[in-house]
């Protein structure tokens, strides 16, 4: 009798564990499955949509609660460098791009917990109203733990490893077509400790 009771309790516990683990996996690993990829950037067009299926809705609620619909804004995320490595505080990156066919855009740096990095550099975001194109027709920004001589700076100080960038494109024009070439490009300049 006791053996049966223990067996039922074990079945219940295993079921709860399996169900929780599979839900966690679906909402964590499944993020990429709901995204379109443009080079290193990923876009989820279902953000804020009323047509989003339960999995997409749960993923959005977890990673982008209160997001705007794609009619109003597009959210692109980047969390890997050009070699597919997680972004790291110990590296210096160059971020560059051309003007986007949109009313306004911004790029914000988030720590791995999806909140702003806890530092007092006041350099968590850059936007289209403050970056200007240089002689090469591109705007440039530096992603690094120290500002150096750059004007457009996204501070990764205390972000450690696994931080990410979010590009917000507000009121995209009808001819706005995301592509690897049209979106900003991240290039690793150097990494501390690298040969």
């Amino acid at each position: 009798m006791l053996r049966r009771i223990l067996a039922w309790i074990a079945a219940l516990a295993v079921g709860l564990l399996l169900g929780s683990a599979s839900a966690w996996a679906a909402l964590t690993v499944g993020v990429s499955g709901f995204s379109s990829h443009y080079g290193a950037w990923s876009l989820n067009r279902a953000a804020g949509s009323t047509a989003a299926d339960p999995y997409t809705r749960a993923i959005i609620a977890r990673y982008g609660l209160l997001a705007l619909s794609s009619r109003e804004a597009l959210y692109f995320n980047l969390d890997r460098d050009e070699r597919g490595q997680p972004l790291s505080e110990s590296c210096v990156y160059d971020l560059s791009g051309r003007d986007l066919a949109t009313r306004w855009w911004s790029i914000t740096l988030y720590a791995s917990d999806s909140y702003l990095v806890r530092n007092d550099d006041h350099a968590a975001s850059i936007d289209s109203s403050h970056v200007g194109a240089g002689d090469d027709g591109l705007w440039h920004a530096r992603v690094s733990s120290v500002q150096g001589n750059t004007v457009n700076w996204l501070s990764s100080r205390t972000a450690r490893r696994g931080f990410s960038l979010t590009l917000r494109v507000y009121n995209p024009q009808r001819d706005f077509t995301p592509s690897e070439d049209s979106l900003p490009r991240l290039t690793t300049v150097s990494c501390a400790g690298a040969l």
């Binding site: 039922w8 079945a11 219940l12 295993v14 079921g15 709860l16 564990l17 399996l18 169900g19 929780s20 599979s22 839900a23 966690w24 679906a26 909402l27 339960p54 999995y55 749960a58 609620a61 977890r62």
Partner: peptide, 17 residues
């Protein structure tokens, strides 16, 4: 029973999140 509990738990978490 374990599989049934797993499916229900999975769906409850996804829908309730």
């Amino acid at each position: 029973a374990a599989l049934l509990v797993a499916v229900v738990t999975h769906l409850v978490i996804v829908f309730a999140t």
